[in-house]
Each structure stands twice: as C-alpha cells, then as structure tokens.
Design a protein around this nucleic acid. Structure first.
Length: 585
RNA sequence: GCUGGUGUAGCUCAGUUGGCUAGAGCAAUUCUUUCGUAAAGAAUAGGUCAGUGGUUCAAAUCCACUCACCAGCUCCA
C-alpha cells in the first residue's frame, strides 16, 4: 500500500503499535510478537509474555515508548526473501511471525526497521518517516485475544492504546468516552427504573413497570408499520418437542445453545425452549393448503426465544439469554424474492430513520461451515441477495462464512454509546427449511411447488434495540416512547385537587400523566422528575388554578411560562404524530 | 468458554500493613414543615462484608473453589 493512500493519523497509529512492540521487547526480551495493527482511534499489539503482566506495568511500557519516540528513529522499509525471513525469525524464536510467513504466498517480504537494536518487524506498512513524528498517545488497557482470532488457538495478551495528532484531541476523546459511559443502558436502566438483572436468572431481563411501558410503546409502533406493510401476526409455543428441532436442523447445529426441558414423568418426548421462531411459523404455514394467489404470505411474530449464551458473552439488554425477536417469515415464489427483500430493506431504513439512528454498516454473510442444504441452493440464494442489494445501490461489506445455517443473510449493524456495533435487522434467504418441512403451495397449473422463505427482523430483538435506543437518547426518550410522559407538580397541598383535574384531562386523551404530591418541597419534586427524565413537568399553584392554566417545563430545559391545557394538548398531539421530530416546545 | 479485573446497606462509595460494636451520603420509614421551577429539618430503621471451605488467638481484609458482574477475545439478534 502506498503511503499517500493512508491518512497520517492512521500511519501514526500503526507506527505506535511498532513502537509498543519495540518497547515491550526492550523491557521483556523473551516476549513473542503477534500482530499489531492500527484501529479506530488507536492501535494494539498482541504479545505472548513469558511472565503474565498486569495493567500496573502499562505506565512503565508507556515511558519506554516515549524514550523511543524521543530518539526519533527513522522507519526504514526493506525486503527479505522467504528464506531470509524464516531464518531471521527462527533466530529470534518469533514463532508467531513464522506462522504468518507460512500463510503469505508472496516471494518477497516487507519489513520495517527502526531503533537502536534495529527492531525489525514483518509489516506491509505504511508508516511515519520516523518515531519522532508521533504526537499524542496513551496505553489504555490490557486484554486477552486469541491468535488469529480463533478460539482454538493460544490466547495472547493484547495491549490497547489510543493515538491522536494532538494532546487536545486525545483528551477530547477521553472525555467523550467518559460521557458515553454515563449513557450505558445498564446504568440508565437502573437509574430510570426500567429493568434489572438478578443472580437467579443470569442473562434474563426483569422488566419493571416503566421499562415495560417503554417496551410496549416500541411494540405499538412495530405493529402499526407491519400492519401497513401487509403482515399478519401469529404466536407460536415457547416449547416444541425435539422432533421439530431435529427436522429443522437445530439439534444438529444449535444444540449447545438450546435450553432443554423435561417433564416429571420422564416420557421420552423431550422438549426444547425455542431458540428461533421459524419452526412454529412453518407449522402454521403447513396447517392449510396455500394457493399461489395467497403469496406472498408475511407472518410476523414477536417471538420470545431462549439461547444459552456462554458465560462472558451476555451483556445487559444487548445480549440476553431470553429475548424477543420482532420476527417475521415471508413465504413467496422465487419471482417475488427480490421485491420482498427490497421491501424489508426499505422498512428497516424507515424504522431507523424514525429514531434518527445512524447505521454503522450493512453486512452480507455467506455460507458457514456448519450448514444445511445443497451447494446449488446456496449459490442461488447468495446470488439473489447480491443482485438485490446491488440493484438497490446499498453499500455493504461481505462477511464470508457468517450466514445462518440455513441460508445467506443481510445484517444491519448499529453502534452503542462506546462504539461497539450490534447486529439488529437481519434479512435471511432460506431455500432449505421449506424443504425440511416439506412446505408447498399450489401453482397456476395445479401442481405442488416449494415456496421460498425469508426470515427477517427489523429491531433485531426488542431488548437489544431498546438498549441501543436508551443509549442513543441518553435516557431522554421522545414523548411517544417515554413510559411516563407528563408529571404534574402541585406547589402546595391545596393545589392537589386542581392538579388531579388537569391530570384527568390529559389521561382522557391517552397521555400517561402522574401527579407528584409527595411530602417534599416543590424543588425536590421537580428534581425527582428531572432525574427520571420525564418529558414534561407541569407546575400548578394559585396562579395556574385561577387562570385554568399550567406552567410548562420540558425536561432538561427552563420553564416556558403558562399555557391553557387545551393549547398544550394540541401541541402534544402534534409532537406525538411526528415521531421523528424534536419537541416543538 | 478464554485472559485480566471486581463483588461492603435499596443506590453511590469509605474501611491503612489481618485487631475493639463495619461507616458516610442519597433513598426508605415516622414526625415537623406546605414550599414558585434540580435536594427543607429532625429522629428511626437498614449488613451472614457474594457463597462455601481453609489459614490464624483473631478474616470484609490472606489462600482455594463456586457464583455473579465488568473490559477484551470468541460467539451472536
């Protein structure tokens, strides 16, 4: 790669990883080197230390790095032949580097040399001209990472750092991360009394009244758009007998993630909690004869599924062991695939726009190792998806071998507050399951024909999507989603009656409105409401009662003055109907 | 599951190298107070220091195991 193709800050981050490796070798000469790339906002390097190291040693390594930077060593690129390269790393006992060379087919290998001990690293570059060009950096944390990203391999020690062109930018980034940590949905979920987790159910979400209301608001919107899009809703059992999972291939490919259930009399019919909703849906499809005239059939299901995720993989709402997919299965003819696919893409983009969510990226995942169905079927499915997204001019990246076991898929990824991405919407093309379940419809010639199946979600899971939303809005949910929309604060006890009259008027219009008449000062009650991020606080006292008005204070803002209740209702109605817009007040 | 870390009251956190009855603020309860836009005052109650086992005259503190959580990896919606 040419130097000018890579931004200066990226080259700096890459050089930083080399400086890190050099510093580590200076301090711990027996260390074996893995790889060290530049990443978003920084860099890392993987090492195998002879003795385990701790985070307390990072300042020492950082200091050594500063020495190397100060000495301003030039980075020189040179080439070695395969034999020279192997000989060099054998001499240094750098087994991981030898492993890398084995995998690169090139005849000539690019190396970078710098430093007083002529630190040499196998590397394509590009780099800065010399270490002295490095500006602001900091080592941030230490973590484990498998060699070449494969859990069957040795686990190495990864040291992460951040790097920027100025100290100011570095500090700004650190501050941003601190702010982001405050948005963590797990923290907000506790503070806003939305949900909790308990040792008695690791990975299971306990929804509190306020959280459940939020969840239901999200469901309501989902139902609206799906009804409009021609979906019908179904509900299938939480448990199915194992023969269903045998048939769909889950037993073979998914068993380690399934919760199994038995009855007390130990009959041989063993059950599993559903890890996916498709089996139940297909049984409904099969329950009657379908004509080509009925297709496409779009069956939606807010299906709660159970997956025994391994310890350490669960993460708040983002990755739970029980979660509800906003699932749907579209049964259609081969000719209808593209059109249906496009409709789902459009719907996903529309929904994300409503929340003003920015998409991180779209991934096209192809056939995995563990899969069912013939080569021909996979080929056809992958080509169809690729053609569709190219026709739609959608930017995507290919994720080789990451499809579902029954078909290739298109995934939409969203970012959380600290930049981790999470897969939300997914659209999966499936020729295999209709085969397994012997699904068919009657075509124009009166023959039985196999339908094609599209599995899809828009939110992905209600839990994950809510996690993303809570962080996206930093807990300050828009009026239409907020579990408690309005709170009325009567100034003194004598205003309680009037407060209740106003509350009833608002409730009649379907707004959720409470009255806070706790034995606390008005200031304290306003504070409580602010902390709960209730969109509107209405204060009522003598003045308001006399003029039949309310004093309005939108959350996080100063008071706006007084207004007639009818006038307020008009404004709120407008705000509720335009979900994606900001509050007009 | 892997590497590293954490676990003290409902919440946020103190608790020196093991040593008197484990503390604080907020929240809760009771009483007083009825207040004009982000915290009124007083009193009361609240803990098997995650669990189990061990070391010790003595363990919140040291060790082992288990559980849960956090960061990253792997995996995933």
């Amino acid at each position: 790669m040419k130097k000018e193709d890579v931004s200066k800050v990226e080259r700096m981050r890459h050089t930083l990883s080399h400086v890190l490796a050099q510093a580590v070798l200076n301090l711990y000469p027996k260390t074996k080197l893995g790889i060290g790339p530049a990443i978003e906002n920084g860099f890392y390097y993987d090492f195998e230390f002879s003795e385990p190291i701790t985070e307390e040693e990072l300042p020492k390594i950082e200091e050594e790095m500063r020495k190397i930077i100060k000495k301003n060593f030039p980075l020189k690129q040179e080439y070695k032949s395969r034999e020279e390269a192997i000989k060099y790393f054998k001499g240094k006992k750098q087994t991981y580097k030898l492993d890398l060379i084995k995998e690169i087919p090139d005849k000539k290998f690019s190396f970078y040399v710098s430093g007083e001990n002529n630190f040499v690293d196998l590397c394509r570059g590009p780099h800065l001209n010399s270490t002295g060009e490095i500006k602001a950096f900091k080592l941030t944390r230490i973590a484990g990472a498998y060699w070449k990203g494969d859990e069957k391999n040795q686990m190495l020690t990864r040291i992460y750092g951040i790097g920027f062109e100025t100290e100011k930018e570095l500090r700004k980034y650190e501050q941003m991360m601190e702010e982001a940590a405050k948005r963590d949905h797990r923290k907000l979920g506790k503070n806003l009394d939305l949900f909790s987790f308990h040792e008695e159910g690791p990975g299971f979400v306990f929804w509190h009244p306020r959280g459940l209301k939020l969840r239901e608001n999200l469901i309501k919107y989902w139902k609206e758009v799906h009804e409009r899009e021609g979906y019908e809703e179904i509900k299938t059992p939480t448990l199915l007998a194992m023969c269903a999972w045998d048939r769909s291939g889950h037993t073979e490919t998914f068993l380690d993630k399934m919760f199994l259930a038995k009855t007390h009399d130990d009959k041989d019919l063993c059950y599993a909690l559903k890890p996916m909703n498709c089996d139940g849906g297909m049984l409904i499809f099969k329950s009657k004869q379908v004509s080509y005239k009925n297709l496409p059939i779009r069956m939606g299901e807010l299906g709660t599924v159970y997956r025994y995720e391994r310890d350490g993989e669960i993460h708040g709402l983002m990755r739970a062991r029980e979660f509800t997919q906003d699932d749907a299965h579209i049964y259609c003819t081969p000719e209808q695939i593209k059109d249906e696919f496009k409709r789902v893409i459009k719907l996903a983009l529309e929904v994300y726009k409503t929340f003003q969510l920015e998409l991180s990226h779209i991934e096209f995942s192809t056939r995995p190792e563990k899969s069912i169905g013939s080569d021909e079927i996979w080929q056809k499915a992958e080509t169809t998806i690729q053609e569709t997204i190219e026709e739609e001019k959608i930017k995507y990246q290919v994720n080789e071998g990451d499809g579902a076991f029954y078909g290739p898929k298109l995934d939409f990824h969203l970012k959380d507050s600290v930049g981790r991405t999470w897969q939300c919407a997914t659209i999966q093309l499936d020729f295999a399951q209709p085969e397994n379940f012997d699904l068919n419809y009657i075509n124009e010639q009166g023959e039985k024909v196999r339908p094609v199946m599209i599995h899809r979600t828009i939110y992905g899971s209600l839990e994950r999507f809510l996690g993303i939303l809570i962080e996206h809005y930093a807990g300050k949910l828009p009026l239409w989603l907020a579990p408690d929309q309005i709170v009325i604060v009567p100034i003194a006890q004598r205003h309680l009656e009037y407060a209740n009259t106003v509350a009833n008027k608002l409730k009649e219009k379907g707004l959720s409105c409470g009255v806070n008449y706790e034995n606390e000062t008005m200031q304290s009650r306003i504070r409580q409401s602010e902390l709960m991020k209730i969109p509107y606080i209405l204060v009522v006292g003598d003045k308001e009662e006399e003029t039949q008005t309310v004093s309005i204070r939108p959350a996080g803002k100063k008071e706006l003055g007084i207004m007639k209740v009818e006038e307020l209702l008009k404004i709120l109605k407008e705000e509720l109907s335009s979900k994606s817009k900001e509050s007009p007040l």
